[in-house]
Every structure is written in C-alpha cells, then in structure tokens.
Amino acid sequence: MALPVKPSPWSSKSIQGVLLDISGVLYNNTEDDVGVAIDGSVEAVERLRKSGLPVRFCTNETQCTREQLVRKLSRLGFTLGVSEVFPPAPAVCQILKERNLRPFTVIHPSCDPEFADIDQNDPNCVVLGDAAKYFTFEKVNKAFQTLMSLEKPVLISMGQGKYYKEAGGLKLDVGAYMKALEYACDVKAEIVGKPSPSFFNAVLKDMGVDASNAVMIGDDIVNDVGGAQACGMKGIQVRTGKFRPSDENHPTVKPDSYVDNLAAGVDLLLQNR
C-alpha cells in the first residue's frame, strides 16, 4: 500500500528549476549493470520538460563517465544531454588543474577517461571515487602512504555517501573509505559533489535559478535533501532507491515533502502550475 504524501508547507508555484538525483530516483541498478527504470520515471521527466521547468541531473556517480551514463539512461528511455548531467569528476579535474595538483586516484576504472589529461606523476594529493570492488587494501593503503608523505596532505573525495543500493543489496560508498583516510592521516577531506554547497551552486548557476526557487528530488536524505536545503533549496525525499523507513525520523534533516516516487514528486510540483 502506498504511503500518503505528507502535506507540503510550501507552494510549488515558486519553483523555477528542478534538480534530480539519478540512481534510485530515475532507475535502479541491476546485477548486469543494465539498470531498470523506476515505474513512471521516464514519463515524469518528460512531463517536467513539457512544463517548461529547466531540469538538471545531479549525481555522485563515479563508476562511469558522463557520456557512458547518458547512453545508459537513453537505453532506459530517458532523453537528456551530456551538458545536463552534473557528476563530481569534471569539477574535480578543474580543481586539480587550477591548483596544480597531481592525484593518486582510487577510482573505478570506468571513470579513468575523465582524468585522461590530468598529470598523475609524482602525486601531491589523493582523489577518491566510488571504486566499488577496486577499493582493495593495496590501493587504499597506497593512498594512505601518499597522504602521509606530504607536508600538506590534500584529500579530495567525490561525494561522501555512506552506502548505496544495488540489486544485491546495500553497498559501502566512498564516504566510508574517505573517513578511514581522514582518521588515519589526520586530514579533512574536501568534498566535491553532493552535499557540497559549491556543487549545488554550480548547478543553480548553470540553470540561472536562485536557490530559493529550486527543488532537489533525491533518495539520499543527507546528501540530496539535506545538502539542497542547506543551500536554500527545497528538498523532496522519494521512497525509492536507498530510502529506508527510518529516514522519516532523521534527527536533523526534515524534507519539505515525502513522495512515493519521482512520478508523485512531479505531480506535487505541477499540481498548481
């Protein structure tokens, strides 16, 4: 039985831009990595587009490139362009270039092309992504040794998620390994991706929309909803993806609305337009 949508204390009439999480909101992962669109999500995105509201797709996905992600979503029925997708890797590469940083990377091999033009000789920083099964002891320990060898260690993490959901169940995310290196090296990681304010603000700037007139729809109550609210946006929590019933009693993050899925979220946004 579908849970009721909690009454919304805000008016959707003020919304001029929509940010959507991808995994767990648009689609669910499958064991063969093909993925499956969540019921109603393809149509929900099309309805948003037809409404005239600008849409951006915000993800902490670091197991593939933007182009690979767009192709995957296209196969599932979604229509979107590479320029509409905002993952952490391109932003990290820009930071590395601006600060003359040479990373030792602990990332998924599928994300390697994003760093193809980055100098990685004689590393003077560490970059973490969701390396999944490639988070080996040898790799993580090499990252530890690199940081310990630096007078001013720099640790950059593409997100800080605790876990995510795949077909086989919940999986540890990059945040767990980030925290291990923070603890071992007495260093504070720089977060690039959700919930970083700079990440959200870059998306808002691209849309040309003020935070007070934007809404984020996601399945991660801390990184999606909490991060958006901290920037002045509205945050809608979907009960799909990694959502767990205990999220509705989160001690610090209180979404502006709960909905059963993206289709219901779009209903909420468009009902008064």
Rank of each mutant, 00 (worst) to 15 (best):
A2L: 14
A2R: 15
L3M: 13
L3I: 09
P4M: 05
V5N: 09
S8F: 15
S11F: 04
Q16E: 11
G17S: 09
L19P: 04
L19H: 04
L20W: 01
S23H: 13
V25F: 11
Y27N: 12
T30Q: 08
E31V: 15
D32S: 08
G35F: 11
V36F: 03
A37C: 03
I38A: 03
I38N: 07
G40D: 07
S41I: 05
V42S: 06
E43W: 09
V45F: 01
R47N: 03
L48A: 10
L48V: 08
R49A: 01
G52T: 03
P54D: 08
C58R: 00
C58V: 14
T59A: 07
T62Q: 02
K72V: 05
K72Q: 09
L73V: 05
S74A: 13
R75C: 02
L80R: 04
V85P: 01
P87S: 15
A89E: 11
A89C: 12
V92E: 06
Q94C: 14
I95W: 08
L96H: 06
E98P: 06
R102L: 10
R102T: 13
P103H: 06
F104I: 01
F104Q: 06
P109L: 03
S110Q: 12
P113A: 06
P113T: 01
E114V: 13
A116R: 07
N121W: 00
C125V: 04
K133T: 13
F135S: 00
F135Y: 14
F137T: 15
E138L: 05
E138G: 01
F144P: 15
L147S: 12
L147E: 13
M148G: 11
S149Q: 10
V154E: 10
G159T: 00
G159K: 01
Y164K: 04
K165D: 06
L170Q: 13
K171Y: 08
V174C: 09
A176S: 14
Y177T: 04
Y177S: 00
Y177C: 02
M178N: 12
K179P: 04
Y183N: 07
A184C: 12
D186H: 12
V187P: 15
K188E: 14
K188Q: 14
A189K: 08
V192Q: 07
V192D: 07
G193Y: 05
P195N: 06
S198F: 05
F200P: 02
N201M: 10
N201I: 02
V203I: 15
L204Y: 02
M207G: 02
G208S: 06
V209C: 06
D210Y: 02
A211V: 12
S212D: 11
N213A: 12
N213H: 15
G218K: 06
V222D: 15
G226D: 06
G227M: 10
A228D: 03
Q229L: 12
C231R: 01
C231Y: 00
G232Y: 04
G235F: 14
R239I: 05
R239G: 05
G241C: 05
K242V: 04
S246I: 14
D247A: 09
N249E: 15
P251E: 07
T252F: 11
T252A: 15
K254D: 03
K254G: 00
K254N: 06
D256Y: 00
D256A: 08
V259A: 02
V259D: 03
N261V: 08
A263V: 03
A264L: 07
L269N: 03
L270I: 05
L270V: 02
Q271D: 11
Q271T: 10
N272T: 11
R273H: 03
R273M: 01
